[in-house]
């Protein structure tokens, strides 16, 4: 980089700070003014922005699991299910659940019993039991769980491991990840902002 005078050096620092949103109002005005008028500053700004993005786009790394303590959650799990955790606790519990399969299993068990208890007066309960027994014998496949949809009304949800759609062969394949990405992209169109409808 060419040698700069003090003012330019200061200004250059402000450009970086601008990217991080840490300027005072006065400094912000100065930067905005410079970016409106000075082509060199604009070029400098874009380079800084690229450097910043390059670092930010590096992935967060997975910590080797043996480095984490093997303690487990307890009453937090019930509070988590009931949405009773404080906003400070929620990220801690979520982070733990992400890294701890044992707690996830305990959570699933807790939730199953919780739902069974809540569903007791409902019409689904006897159906559950029948479905569970019959499918187990009919398919000889382990059925992990039988539950009601959160709304419950007229719906029953059964978990199964092999979908009846699953089949091999030479057929064309579409992945749900692709469909999901397409939905996300379309859903990101804001209200009242139009995108050009001419192809590039």
């Amino acid at each position: 980089m060419a040698r700069m005078n003090t003012y330019q050096a200061q200004l250059s620092i402000l450009l970086s700070c601008y990217l991080d949103g840490v300027l005072t109002d006065e400094e912000l005005n100065e930067v905005v003014h410079v970016l409106d008028n000075d082509l060199e500053a604009i070029a400098e700004f874009h380079k800084l922005k690229e450097a910043r993005r390059a670092v930010r786009l590096m992935p967060m790394l997975e910590i080797p699991s043996h480095l984490l303590p093997r303690t487990h959650l307890d009453e937090e799990l019930s509070a988590f299910l009931d949405g009773e955790l404080s906003t400070q606790e929620t990220p801690i519990v979520s982070a733990h659940l992400e890294s701890c399969g044992e707690c996830r299993m305990v959570l699933a068990d807790l939730d199953r019993s919780r739902i069974a208890i809540r569903a007791l007066p409902g019409v689904e309960s006897p159906v559950f039991l029948d479905v569970h027994r019959e499918t187990t014998t009919a398919t000889r496949r382990r059925i992990p769980a039988v539950v009601a949809l959160a709304t419950g009304v007229a719906a029953v949800v059964i978990a199964f491991t092999v979908g009846p759609f699953a089949s091999g062969g030479e057929q064309p394949t579409i992945s749900i990840a692709d469909l999901n990405a397409r939905h996300a992209a379309v859903a990101s169109v804001p209200a009242a902002v139009q995108i050009s409808n001419t192809a590039p």
Binding site: L149, A154, A155, V156, V157, I158, A159, F160, T161, V162, G163, F165, A166, S167, G169, Q171, P172, T173, I174, S175, I176, A177, L179, R182
Partner: peptide, 20 residues
């Protein structure tokens, strides 16, 4: 998404069944 019947759709191996 409306998709041809010939097409295989991946990503439902661990699906649940929803009955209405």
């Amino acid at each position: 998404f409306a998709i041809s019947k010939r097409t295989v759709i991946d990503g439902f191996a661990d699906s649940m069944a929803l009955v209405t």
